[in-house]
Design a protein around this nucleic acid. Structure first.
Length: 668
RNA sequence: AGCGGGGUGGGGAAGCCAGGUUAUCCCGCGGGGCUCAUAACCCCGAGGUCGGAGGUUCAAAUCCUCCCCCCGCUACCA
């Protein structure tokens, strides 16, 4: 039976635009795979959608005074633009607010409910007395019960990585108002995840297609024991619970999001006018190979939660494999949206073409390892590899043909052993690229493509048609006949990786149709003698250094570049010490005069914390000061040391030792 | 502390999971060839005790143990 594949790319969360990291970990690999299968003529569908529920969108909407749907609408369009801009050829880019999604999610939930895999339970839940509402997971922060980390969120601890429940947190606080929540009873629905532990372990360990990074990670969690999963939340934004008593509650976003893969397939089927078509992919028997492309951060959800949900539901196929892309750093450092240390897809596309980016992101490192986006490296790969090796080979071949053979493929009199050998290595290359793509080895596949271009350059050098044309035109004809076959193959081979360039190359070669719809094996076909070529133009132009510098300046985020770095040595010049406040006097409305005892000595300090702290709050407390700061006179009073405090939105919070230490202790 | 990733010729990276002939690729460097092409292309060469120490093995960059060093995770976020 013919192979059928359903490819999904992780649903982008609809409250921000995408950056280069998203592309590298998920969307470009998925797109390459889909384009490859499509060229193979296989039955493949490429599914994606925006994920539009959940607390972050709700919180943000609240803050902006709009509805959550408005936020989701806004970003759905932008994200779609980003992805289409880099060439992602989705069959459908749907959304989880689509009516079909609601319907599918409700049905999924009900089926599990009827089968007894979802049960109701009164739980003790955190409720904020000041905000007067139950607090869904991320509305609470506190101390992790496992590792003691103080900034753990209600759903998980970022420090030790464990998944938590809000009530497990020690010292919880409401993130909206900071109030200590109280425990209150609330009814919730749980998915019997624990019931699937054995089946999951079996499925995970028996699945030879799962990459090691996914498999090991999931096995570790599954074998540590799975708890039942609270899949409802006290909020309005989301899919309403389809059973009695669920008023004011919705299904948890991580429960409905993966169902989006199914619902989006349904939307697609409807759009192409073959409403029941989706069943061919999701059917348990005779369904498609379901291939999920995700980022490494959501392995847990795709390799544990999702398969368990599917096992419980029973009528859909389980994932065939899950490809988890690792992260992309920017100039060697982790990307960070809040620090502005990111390059957004939109910004990139304003300045450069998508193909070189696709090339770079694939080449930078294998998918299962972290990669780095560095401007210098990008320019190097662009100029030295794409331009010099690939584009230049194509250009010189086509130019020679234009000059010596009127832009037509010459008729080779006879082909030497060497010519035949090169022709057969074209076929071998086509197969090698395919084999790598079959195994999700995108980088290796692209390397094979480049090897073929390299071979082309070598072949041209060895056969030197430019000099053969004088001594033996027949040799020149043979040589260029062979060389142009390599170019022809490249036109198809680069298509999954660099679809825009493939298109241009198709035009230059006057090949019929579009590269994306032309069968993969066409790469092995030969351009016949007399075939006429189109207008020859370089595929990629070199990035000149001034031009590159200009792009670099507007592309790379500025904020971090301005941040000066401090060496350890420099840092140690600052002498931070613990002292005790032994005297407090007001100095106008904003300032306080303090005397701070640092061991044997006492130092004066004028601090701008008036109105923030009272005399009583300060007297006798231990604080941290910069002991060797250059003394200054503030409000007419000499200040010898500087008091340290955290500053945020007009708040001033003193830095104090976690417990009492001898005065004068050094802080390092 | 924990979790994760990494340490391979001057720079950047593969290879490591499935151990095995001269350790691969791009850049840089030295020499040569070519002059069709976007000062591009091709060939040859120098340069590596594959972080360190043990161990397993006929054989280890690759497996095991211990150690050293670097990076990320404490802030929504692939």
């Amino acid at each position: 039976m013919e192979r059928r594949t359903l490819i999904t790319a992780a649903l982008p969360y609809s409250n921000d635009r995408l950056h280069l990291g998203h592309l590298r970990s998920t969307y470009i690999p998925a797109d390459i795979y889909y384009r490859y299968l499509r060229k193979r003529g296989e039955d493949a569908v490429f599914i994606c959608a925006t994920d539009e529920h959940g607390t972050p969108i709700a919180v943000r909407a609240e803050r902006e005074g709009v509805t959550p749907k408005e936020i989701a609408d806004r970003y759905h369009v932008l994200i779609k633009d980003d992805l289409e801009g880099v060439g992602c050829a989705f069959s459908i880019f749907s959304r989880t607010t689509h009516p079909i999604h609601y319907e599918t999610t409700r049905a999924f939930f009900l089926k599990l409910y009827e089968k007894g895999f979802i049960y109701e339970k009164e739980v003790e839940q955190l409720k904020c007395p000041r905000c007067d509402r139950f607090l869904p997971d991320r509305y609470v922060e506190g101390t992790c019960p496992y590792c003691g980390y103080e900034g753990a969120r209600g759903d998980s601890c970022d420090y030790c990585g464990r998944y938590l429940r809000p009530t497990e947190l020690r010292n919880p606080r409401c993130i909206v108002c900071g109030e200590k929540p109280v425990v209150a009873k609330s009814k919730h629905w749980f998915f019997k995840l624990s019931a699937f532990q054995e089946e999951l372990l079996k499925w995970l360990s028996g699945n030879e297609k799962l990459p090691v990074n996914v498999k090991n990670y999931a096995l570790k969690w599954a074998s540590e024991g799975l708890k039942d999963w609270d899949i409802t939340r006290d909020m309005e934004w989301g899919v309403p619970i389809p059973v009695e008593g669920g008023e004011g509650k919705v299904i948890y976003v991580w429960f409905d999001a993966p169902i989006g893969y199914i619902s989006a397939t349904k939307v697609w089927a409807e759009q192409i006018g073959d409403k029941e078509r989706w069943r061919k992919y999701w059917g348990k028997e005779g369904g498609a190979r379901i291939v999920h492309f995700i980022g490494k951060d959501i392995i847990y959800h795709h390799a544990i939660f999702w398969p368990a949900m599917l096992m419980a539901e029973g009528s859909f196929g389980l994932p065939y494999t899950i490809i988890a892309g690792e992260y992309l750093t920017l100039e060697g450092r982790k990307m960070s949206k809040s620090r502005g240390w990111v390059i957004s897809v939109a910004d990139y596309l304003k300045l450069l073409e998508p193909d070189p980016l696709r090339y770079y992101l694939v080449m930078a490192a294998p998918l299962d390892r972290d990669a780095d986006f560095s401007w210098e490296e990008f320019v190097r790969r662009y100029n030295d590899e794409l331009v010099d090796i690939l584009s230049n080979f194509i250009h010189r071949t086509l130019t020679l043909l234009t000059r010596y053979f009127n832009g037509k493929v010459p008729k080779p009199p006879h082909l030497t052993e060497k010519d035949l050998e090169v022709l057969s290595s074209i076929k071998a290359a086509v197969d090698k690229v395919a084999e790598n793509l079959e195994n999700f080895k995108f980088r290796d596949g692209l390397l094979e493509v480049m090897k073929l271009a390299h071979l082309g350059n070598k072949y041209l050098n060895d056969t030197a048609p430019w000099s053969a044309i004088k001594s033996s035109p027949e040799r020149a004809a043979a040589s260029l006949y062979v060389a142009v076959q390599i170019v022809r193959a490249l036109a198809d081979l680069i298509c999954p990786f660099m679809p825009f360039s493939a298109k241009r190359l198709y035009k230059m070669l006057k090949l019929k149709g579009e590269p994306e719809n032309t069968p993969w094996e066409a790469a092995k076909e030969k351009l016949p003698p007399e075939h006429e070529l189109g207008e020859v133009k370089p595929l990629f132009k070199k990035l000149k250094s001034e031009e590159g510098e200009k792009i670099r300046r507007s592309l790379l985020p500025r904020e971090e570049k301005q941040m000066a770095q401090v060496s350890l040595e420099e840092f140690y010049k600052a002498e931070l010490r613990v002292g005790r406040i032994v005297k407090v006097k007001e100095l106008g409305r904003e300032h306080l005069y303090l005397v701070i005892k640092l061991g044997e000595v006492e130092r004066s300090c004028v601090a701008r914390i008036g109105g923030k702290y009272t005399r009583e709050q300060l007297l006798g407390r231990q604080v941290v000061v910069v002991a060797n700061i250059k003394p200054a006179t503030i409000r007419g009073v000499r200040s010898e040391v500087m008091l340290l405090a955290a500053v945020h939105d007009g708040e001033v919070v003193l830095i104090v030792p976690e417990r009492e230490v001898p005065e004068g202790s050094l802080v390092r």
